[in-house]
Design a binder for these strands. Structure first.
Length: 499
RNA sequence: GCGCCUGUAGCUCAGUGGUAGAGCAUUCGACUUUUAAUCGAAUGGUCGUUGGUUCAAUUCCAACCAGGCGCACCA
């Protein structure tokens, strides 16, 4: 018999013995008066004498993370997932049945205790138990107490084990929750209305990405999981909802990496009468105040880097960034004109070792150069602004430069955290952009945007001047919790099934 | 999709072409303020899977499975 089978059998036997003794082994409730983390917060700093003077009685509960037995005197360590407290169990201080229950406990079981707080000789805050209540059984052996669980595959597949034994992991997800709450509060306080738009869409629009497909049986209709809520949110702005936001999942059928999970969370928002300049200013305030609210500071450590999220953020035009990086790399003067001419831009890209596809124009090539040379160097918060029109089918052109749109991306820690633009609201121009995308699609670009006639129709009813933005929540949480992989900030990242 | 790396006890990890190792966990024993408790003893393995080479494979080789990292794609 394997070690695991043996341990499970032993635990089952202990459970059966409890039942034989008449103990309710899966009781319905427990009258917990205090959470362990509250006890530690309230009494963690109080001295032995103060505790003795009070004789503070409590009833608390948690999972057993350690059992230290000395025969007639014993210690349990209980956890509520956030804090731990020690329990002292003396044979002569609790009823005989409770002591028998204690002897049948296993590492990982859930118990409730009643007793009074004191400090041991070694000054550990401890509950001197007067009663012990069995609450639930842990039938499988838990990971070891000292090294914990480090195998990343098990941590992702069996997140509950990770949460039981790795308090850091628990803290990451508590921070994530605070980040989302802070964003919601920030937006709501500024008069944005939170809305929910379809996750199942007949046309997957609003981004350049390959979608997942699904099917509705009764309607006998193929549908896409959304790649972005953008086109629906702007329809709401057409409808007169001037400030809207949505925090929800997007699904993109593309590669998986430390920065990409097939489903990820975005906060996307739209504001009538705002343009991309206004959004830059708002984004600085949003990021820094969410950081302060969620982790108490806007000065963070990410890997080897110290990053300041305090405004103002650096602003850098995309073409200037690509031009300067290419000039440095090639040790020769690269001009704005070089990047705007398809032929010279393509030559530069090839010199830089980049593949140039036949259908790619100067704008796409310039963006490729930027991404290859600049992206991972943008560690301090940086707005990269003024994108080529070619790669931005939903953004409004600059009045004096039709090849450039009013768009920015925010980079922090070497990756993109936000993407925003002044929204294209001219339906005729939007139709032309979609048609250009359809040409790319015909050439085999599976990520090119599809035509959306209803969206064009909505624009024909009139979209006011509007600014819109998407903020990647997972990546923001990575930065604020100093995690190198997006899987560390998603409770159940997508994994291949086993067996 | 490509490249590199990893897979040995429940957990964390050593290791070897010739009967498989440690710590923790588990079981038994001692112990009424310990805290990685300690001390004594014991149990626990299809060495990811399937093939191949070999007298002999956990070890060498190949394919496959799962994962990590990097590249590509992308946010």
């Amino acid at each position: 018999m394997s070690s695991q089978d043996e341990q499970v059998e032993q635990r089952r036997a202990n459970l059966a013995e409890l039942a034989r003794l008449g103990v309710e082994v899966y009781p319905r409730t427990f009258d917990r008066r205090d959470a362990i983390s509250d006890l530690v917060a309230r009494h963690g700093e109080r001295t032995h004498d103060e505790l003795e003077a009070d004789r503070t009685e409590t009833a608390t509960a948690g999972r057993i993370l350690a059992i230290r037995s000395f025969g007639k005197a014993n210690f349990l360590v209980l956890s509520d997932g956030r804090a731990k407290i020690q329990v002292y169990i003396r044979q002569d201080s609790i009823p005989a049945l409770d002591f028998t229950i204690f002897k049948l406990l296993d590492f990982g079981d859930w118990v409730g205790v009643e007793g009074r707080l004191f400090r041991t000789k070694t000054n550990e805050l401890t509950i001197w138990a007067s009663r012990l209540h069995f609450l639930s059984k842990c039938l499988l052996p838990l990971p070891e107490k000292w090294h914990g669980l480090t195998d990343v595959e098990t941590r992702y597949r069996q997140r509950y084990l990770d949460l039981i034994v790795n308090p850091d992991s628990r803290r990451v997800f508590e921070t994530r929750s605070r980040v989302v709450a802070a964003i919601r509060e920030f937006m709501t306080a500024r008069g944005y209305l939170e809305v929910e738009t379809p996750m199942m869409q007949p046309i997957a629009g609003g981004a350049i990405a390959r979608p997942f497909t699904t099917h509705h049986n009764t309607l006998d209709m193929d549908l896409f999981l959304r790649i972005a809520p953008e086109l629906y949110l702007k329809r709401l702005t057409v409808g007169g909802m001037e400030k809207v936001f949505e925090i929800n999942r997007n699904f993109r059928n593309e590669g998986i990496s430390t920065q990409h999970n097939p489903e990820f969370t975005m906060m996307e928002f739209y504001e009538a009468y705002a343009d991309y300049q206004a959004l830059m200013t708002m984004t600085e305030v949003l990021i820094s105040s969410v950081a302060r609210q969620a982790i108490g500071t806007d000065q963070i450590t990410f890997g080897d880097h110290a990053i300041s999220l305090a405004p103002p953020f650096t602003r850098l035009s995309l073409r200037a960034a690509a031009r300067e990086a290419a000039s440095r790399r090639l040790a020769r003067e690269v001009t704005d004109a070089d990047l705007r001419q398809r032929d010279t831009a393509a030559d530069l890209a090839r010199l830089l070792g980049l593949d140039v596809a036949a259908g790619h124009g100067a704008g796409k090539i310039t963006t490729d150069i930027f991404e290859a040379l600049c992206e991972d160097r943008l560690v301090q918060p940086t707005f990269v602004y003024d994108f080529p029109t070619e790669v931005s089918p939903l953004s409004k052109q600059k009045p004096d430069d039709p090849d450039t749109v009013e768009r920015f991306e925010l980079y922090i820690g070497g990756f993109e955290v936000a993407n925003a633009f002044s929204e294209l609201n001219d339906p005729a121009e939007q139709r032309r952009r979609f048609e250009a995308q359809l040409k790319d699609r015909a050439l085999g670009d599976l990520e090119a945007h599809q035509m959306d006639d209803d969206y064009i129709r909505a624009l024909e009813y009139g979209l006011p001047p509007t600014g819109g933005e998407g903020v990647g929540i997972d990546r923001l949480v990575m930065l604020l919790t100093n995690r190198p992989s997006i899987r560390d900030v998603i409770l159940f990242p997508l994994m291949r099934t086993r067996d």
